[in-house]
Structure formats: C-alpha cells, structure tokens
C-alpha cells in the first residue's frame, strides 16, 4: 500500500481546502449563529432553513446550481468577471466558496446550540459589570461556548474533507488545483486500479475515525450532529 505522488498532492490539497474553509466558516458562521440564537425576527425560520439546506440537498444539485451561478452567464460569474478575477469554476477558490456553502450547517448549528444553551443570564451579568459587547463575546461567550466551537471546527473540517459531489461538478479534476482525495479515489476506482484506490481509501477511513474519536473523547455529550 504505497501512495503515489498524485495521491500525496491530493491529500495536501484536501487539507488546505478544508483548513481554509473551516477558518472562513468560523468567521462567517459565528455571527449567523449568534443572530439565529438571539433573534425574535420572523426571518429566523427562513434563514435557518437556508443554512440547513445542504443537509438535505443532494450535492449534485448544489454543484449544478453553483456551476450555473458561477459560470460566465450566471449572476456570481458576472460579478466575479466585473471584479476582474474571472470565473470561479475549475479553480481552488471556487472550491473554497462551494465548500463554505456546503459545510455551513455543520459549523453554524453547533455554535448556535452552544450559544442558545448559555441563556441570557451570563451576558446580563457581564453587562451589569460594564463589559462591552466585544468584551462579553471574547471573555464570556467564547469560553462558555467553547465545546460548540470545537465541535463546529472539527465537523466543518471533516465534512469538507469528505466532500465529493460538489467538487466533481465544479472542479474539472485539475491536478494540484481541484483534484481532492475523494475525486482521486473515484478516478482510481473508475480506472479499475483497485490497489491504489484501496491505499487512499484506507487513509480516509483511518482519518475519519480519528477525527470522530477526537470529537467524542474531548467533547462528550456536546455533539449533536445536524440537529438544531
């Protein structure tokens, strides 16, 4: 069971994609989770539903619409061309954008759960002690909701690593740019190179097991995947 140079390139690319996606999702997802946890707005339902859509939609549907939207005639494509950065499909950053959509619920929902379970009390106490909004977030919310953030990071990362259908639809299978591990395994299987497929697939199985083991060991009882 030896990994080829192509396999290693795919692994590195996948880790880079998942890492960048997770960081972006924590930045984008935290305010969304915060808002969903606190708002009384009639938009809470619709926004929550849109965030959760990727849990339900087949990745091919998401990939197909992203391909159309980010293409030269789609609204996102028109916008990126106007910005002068061309179109997103077949590029690494196109995959990042797609992955942010695709893994959003896995980051937003654990953080939202954690914030909701804090209740208003700790924040009210902090406010009476004259802590400003930022101070309250960094010194009260973040430490108390830490398990939620840990779960969100691990799930966001792991779910992006496991991404396949969306990448297949908009990636174009370019080595070092969009050929991630799942696509590489798929290629091996389709090309009937089962030995290579086994090698890389085994790496994925071990990796996924370790990630979930870490999640359940360090964060017991706080892990409710996909349940708002």
């Amino acid at each position: 069971m030896t990994l080829s140079e192509g396999d290693l390139a795919a692994i590195w690319l996948t880790l880079r994609l998942a890492g960048i996606t997770t960081v972006l999702l924590l930045i984008i997802g935290t305010p969304i989770a915060w808002w969903l946890a606190h708002t009384q707005s009639k938009w809470k339902g619709p926004v929550g539903a849109v965030v959760a859509l990727p849990l339900v939609l087949p990745p091919t549907v998401l990939g197909f619409y992203l391909l159309l939207a980010m293409g030269p005639n789609g609204p996102v494509g028109q916008f990126t061309q106007w910005l002068g950065i061309g179109t997103l499909p077949f590029t690494f950053w196109g995959l990042v954008v797609a992955s942010v959509f695709y893994s959003m619920p896995f980051v937003v929902q654990p953080i939202q759960n954690a914030i909701e379970s804090l209740g208003p009390r700790p924040l009210e106490v902090a406010a009476t002690l004259r802590a400003g909004p930022w101070d309250r977030f960094w010194s009260v919310v973040l430490p108390l909701a830490r398990p939620g953030f840990v779960t969100a990071s691990i799930l966001g990362f792991a779910h992006t690593v496991g991404e396949f259908g969306v990448v297949l639809m908009i990636g174009g299978n370019i080595a070092g740019e969009t050929r991630v591990v799942s696509v590489q395994i798929y290629d091996h299987v389709e090309a009937m190179e089962y030995a290579q497929a086994h090698g890389l697939a085994a790496v994925m199985v071990v990796f996924s097991f370790l990630v979930l083991l870490a999640l359940y060991t360090w964060n017991p009882g706080k892990t409710r995947v996909g349940m708002p």
């Binding site: 293409g71 030269p72 005639n73 499909p89 077949f90 174009g172 299978n173 370019i174 290629d187 389709e190």
Partner: peptide, 20 residues
C-alpha cells in the same frame, strides 16, 4: 487548459454552461 469531466456527459455540461 484542460478541465476534465469524469465522463462525456459531464464534459458536455462544462462546455454547455459556457464555463469552458
């Protein structure tokens, strides 16, 4: 400048949507 479809149907899709 290759973008590769996993089969000929997906290849057509890349060209049909104008992405290639």
């Amino acid at each position: 400048k290759f973008v590769m479809g996993e089969n000929i149907a997906q290849t057509y899709q890349f060209a049909r949507t104008g992405n290639a």
